[in-house]
C-alpha cells in the first residue's frame, strides 16, 4: 500500500459510490453461493468434531479426536497417497495432451473433430463405466487389439492388477477430459492475434521457438485454468473410481473421496468421515493457493 493523499469529502463519496457499485456486481452471486453452499459446508465442519453415526439425534462432541486419529490411520494415508498420485498424473497428462490437441486442432478444418473430442465429457458415469469395463476386461477390446497386432505379451489385467488399476483409471480419466482441456487451450490460442504468429513465421522463427516465446506466454491464463481445474477435479475424483473399481482391488484405487464415503455411510462413522473431508478440503485449499500464486505470477498482465 502506498501512502494516500488526504481525501476530500467528495472523493470519499466517490469511493463509497464505487464500493456500492462493486457490491451490486458481486451481491447476487455472493448471496446464492453463501446461502446454498458456503453456509451448509461451514456448518457441517462441526460434525468433524463429533462422534456420530449419521442418524442419531444425539451427537457426541469429542473435540479434535477424529483428527488425532486420522494422523495414525494408515488407510487414510494410503487413500491420500493414491489421490495425489492420481491427481498429479492426471494433471500432467491431461494438460500435455490437451495442449497438443489444441495446437493440432487449431486449424478450422478440424472443427468437426473438436466436437467429437467433446463427446466423452458428456457421458454419464454409468455409460463411462460400462464402456471402459469392456475395454479393460481380460478378454476386452484393449487386450484383443494387443493380441491382434502380435503384442500378446503386453496384455494385462488392467483393472484386476493392483499395480495397474490406478493407472487404468487415470487413462480413463484422461480419455474423458482431454477434450475439455483442449477447448480451454483453444480459447487461449485463438486469443493470440494471427498477426503476431504471421510476423514471427515471416521472421523465420522456428515452430518450437514460436511456441516457447510467443504462444505459451499468451496462453498462460488458459494453462492456469486447466491446471487448477484438472488438479482439483482429480483430487475430488469419485464417480470414475466408484463405478469402475470401488477402490479395489483391495485398496489399490481407494481415493480420499471413496474413503470418506466408506467411513461415513458403510461404517456409520459420519463424524470421522466429515473429519477426513475437512482435512482433504484444507489440503486442497493450501495446495491450490500455492499453485495459483505461482502460476499467475507467470502470466502476461493485460
Amino acid at each position: 500500500m502506498q501512502a494516500k493523499p488526504p481525501r476530500s469529502f467528495l472523493a470519499n463519496n466517490a469511493r463509497w459510490r464505487r464500493i456500492f457499485t462493486d457490491t451490486m456486481f458481486v451481491l447476487p452471486a455472493a448471496l446464492i453461493f453463501a446461502l446454498f453452499f458456503a453456509y451448509p459446508v461451514i456448518s457441517s465442519f462441526y460434525l468433524s468434531l463429533t462422534k456420530w453415526d449419521g442418524l442419531n439425534p444425539e451427537l457426541k462432541f469429542i473435540g479434535l479426536d477424529n483428527f488425532v486419529r486420522l494422523w495414525t490411520d494408515k488407510h487414510f494415508w494410503l487413500a491420500f497417497k493414491n489421490t495425489f498420485k492420481y491427481a498429479f498424473l492426471v494433471t500432467v497428462i491431461q494438460n500435455a495432451l490437451g495442449l497438443i490437441l489444441a495446437l493440432a486442432a487449431s486449424n478450422k478444418v478440424f472443427r468437426g473433430f473438436r466436437v467429437l473430442f467433446l463427446i466423452p465429457p458428456l457421458l454419464s458415469s454409468i455409460a463411462l463405466g460400462t464402456i471402459w469395463k469392456y475395454m479393460y476386461a481380460p478378454k476386452g477390446i484393449i487386450n484383443s487389439l494387443l493380441t491382434g497386432i502380435g503384442l500378446e505379451a503386453y496384455t494385462q489385467n488392467w483393472l484386476g492388477d493392483p499395480k495397474l488399476a490406478l493407472y487404468s483409471l487415470i487413462a480413463t480419466n484422461v480419455w474423458k477430459w482431454a477434450g475439455m482441456a483442449m477447448i480451454i487451450y483453444l480459447a487461449g490460442l485463438q486469443s493470440i492475434p494471427d498477426v503476431i504468429q504471421e510476423a514471427a513465421s515471416i521472421d523465420g522463427v522456428g515452430a518450437w521457438q514460436r511456441f516457447r516465446h510467443i504462444t505459451f506466454p499468451l496462453i498462460a491464463p488458459a494453462f492456469t485454468i486447466n491446471v487448477v481445474l484438472s488438479m482439483i477435479g482429480s483430487l475430488k475424483v469419485f464417480d470414475i473410481i466408484y463405478i469402475m473399481t470401488q477402490g479395489g482391488p483391495g485398496r489399490a484405487t481407494e481415493s480420499l473421496t471413496t474413503y470418506i464415503f466408506g467411513r461415513a455411510f458403510d461404517a456409520n462413522k459420519f463424524g470421522y468421515g466429515t473429519a477426513v473431508a475437512v482435512a482433504m478440503f484444507a489440503v486442497i485449499l493450501v495446495l491450490s493457493l500455492v499453485q495459483l500464486r505461482y502460476l499467475t505470477r507467470r502470466e502476461v498482465q493485460g
Binding site: F37, P40, V278, I284
Partner: peptide, 29 residues
C-alpha cells in the same frame, strides 16, 4: 479491484469442497 481479493478466495475455496460436505445441512435448509 485488489481489495476484493479475499472474497475471490472465498469463492475459490468453493471449488475445492467435496459436495458431500454440504449435503446434510443443505438438505435441512
Amino acid at each position: 479491484r485488489s481489495n476484493w481479493t479475499p472474497l475471490f478466495y472465498f469463492f475459490l475455496a468453493g471449488i475445492m469442497v467435496p459436495f458431500q460436505l454440504a449435503m446434510l445441512p443443505l438438505y435441512r435448509l
